[in-house]
Amino acid sequence: MKRYFIIAVCALGFVACKQNENEKKPELALADFTQQDYKSFGQEITPANSLSAKEMTAKYVSLQAGDTIPAKFSATINSVCKMKGCWMTLDLPGTDEDPMVKFKDYGFFVPKDIEGKEVIVEGIAFIEETSVEDQKHFAEDAGKTKEEIEAISEPSRSPGFLAHGVLIKQ
């Protein structure tokens, strides 16, 4: 009788172990994912629920001047302020102008050598009008030539973004 009891207990243990193997294994926690794969700037954010660049393009197309919407999206960095890292432009497919990302309250900066990297930004999206003076200032910060800077002669309307948090893929 003792022998059958031991066999039954072992069999139950085997079945229990087999069921655990079939269960879905928990995925990596977002906090671990963020800390391992991204470098964070500004407020702490996670990659969860971020829109793709294509989805964000559709949001910008629906905005009128003066509209603002909260948003979080991923895109590729096109350029960065070479003076301080105080702004960056992002590549959004199907837009004439790249959105310029500035940082809330001028409270943080990003590295100056991150062109081509993937980024997730969270904050407020809007359409802005940029004066000729500001465009020339940004062109100078971006390292544009004197001729390119002097060619700026009209205000521009472009997508803008005020980020309170940024994740840069490492």
Rank of each mutant, 00 (worst) to 15 (best):
A163V: 11
V110W: 01
K112Y: 05
S156P: 02
P99V: 01
F73E: 08
E140D: 12
G107W: 03
N78F: 15
A163P: 08
S131T: 14
V9Y: 14
T34H: 02
P93G: 11
F138M: 12
F33K: 13
F103L: 12
E55D: 15
T34P: 00
M1V: 15
K104A: 08
S131R: 01
C17M: 05
F33W: 10
Y106A: 09
S62C: 02
Q135G: 11
G107M: 07
G42P: 04
P70V: 05
G160Q: 06
S74G: 09
D141S: 09
L162A: 07
M1I: 14
M88D: 08
K84H: 14
D96G: 12
V119N: 04
T145Q: 00
M1R: 02
A31Q: 08
I7T: 09
V121R: 02
K112D: 12
K146C: 00
A65E: 09
I77P: 05
E118P: 05
K82D: 06
K102A: 14
C17D: 00
L162H: 09
S40L: 14
E133I: 11
F108G: 07
A75C: 13
R157L: 13
V101R: 04
T68L: 07
K59I: 06
E133N: 06
E140S: 07
Y106M: 07
I69S: 08
Y38S: 05
A11M: 13
S158K: 15
K82I: 03
M88V: 14
E147D: 00
L92T: 08
V119E: 06
A11P: 01
P93T: 12
S131K: 04
G66W: 12
C10E: 10
E118Q: 15
T89A: 08
P99N: 06
A142R: 01
G85A: 06
W87C: 09
S40N: 06
Q170D: 08
P93S: 13
V80W: 07
S74Y: 02
F138K: 03
V15P: 00
S79T: 14
P70M: 07
P99A: 02
F161C: 03
A48Y: 10
M56T: 11
L30T: 10
M83N: 14
F73W: 06
S153V: 09
F73L: 03
V132P: 15
A142S: 04
T68M: 11
F41L: 01
V9G: 06
K25T: 05
D105Y: 02
L51S: 08
M88L: 15
S156Q: 12
I6F: 13
P155Q: 07
D98M: 05
K146A: 00
I168Y: 06
F126E: 04
I77H: 07
G143H: 03
S158I: 04
A53F: 02
K54E: 13
Y38H: 07
T57Q: 06
I7G: 11
G85I: 01
K136N: 09
R3Q: 13
L162G: 04
M56C: 10
A139N: 03
F33V: 08
S153H: 11
G116F: 09
P93N: 11
E115P: 02
L30G: 05
K24G: 01
T68S: 10
D32W: 04
L167D: 01
K39R: 13
F33D: 07
A142C: 01
S158D: 12
A58G: 09
F103I: 05
